[in-house]
């Protein structure tokens, strides 16, 4: 029994299931935003698992996801621009929640690893994830306003 793993399990249940629900139904814009939140949830789960199993190498998974996840969402924003429709009302709160959760998990992981290169790496993953989430979410909202361009 490990507090990190318990947090990861909790985050999986509380985060991934709403994301699956959100991507499976509703207007296309809502689904894309839910997928964007899914990237954040899973990336944080990876960070928690890396701490829980005591394997710093697992942080690489979070790093790859923090870089490629927003890229995937941007692909959707560009290629589905003319069908995306309005961004959901919960887009802003969801993004704020994701950034807040990212800050919480990253700070906790950094404190647990102690000062050093590993902590800087975790912080880098957190910054990339938060920035990617905000950029992708903004792009999803802007794609509707500008209409299709491509």
């Amino acid at each position: 029994m490990n507090a990190w793993l318990a947090c990861a399990a909790l985050l999986l249940v509380a985060g991934l299931l709403p994301v699956v629900w959100g991507t499976a139904r509703g207007p296309l814009g809502h689904r894309a935003m839910a997928q964007n939140c899914g990237t954040s949830v899973v990336c944080l789960v990876m960070l928690l698992l890396a701490q829980g199993y005591g394997r710093p190498a697992y942080t690489d998974l979070a790093l790859v996801l923090a870089v490629l996840g927003p890229v995937g969402t941007l692909v959707f924003a560009r290629l589905l621009a003319d069908e995306l429709g309005e961004a959901p009302r919960w887009a802003r709160p969801a993004t704020a929640l994701a950034v807040g959760a990212t800050a919480l998990v990253v700070i906790a992981s950094c404190v647990a690893t102690g000062p050093g290169r590993a902590a800087v790496k975790v912080a880098l993953v957190g910054v990339l994830l938060a920035a990617g989430n905000v950029i992708a979410s903004r792009d999803l909202s802007a794609a509707h306003r500008d209409g299709g361009h491509g």
Partner: peptide, 8 residues
């Protein structure tokens, strides 16, 4: 690079 590698 130095942040991301495991052993220096």
């Amino acid at each position: 690079w130095f942040v991301l590698i495991s052993t220096v």
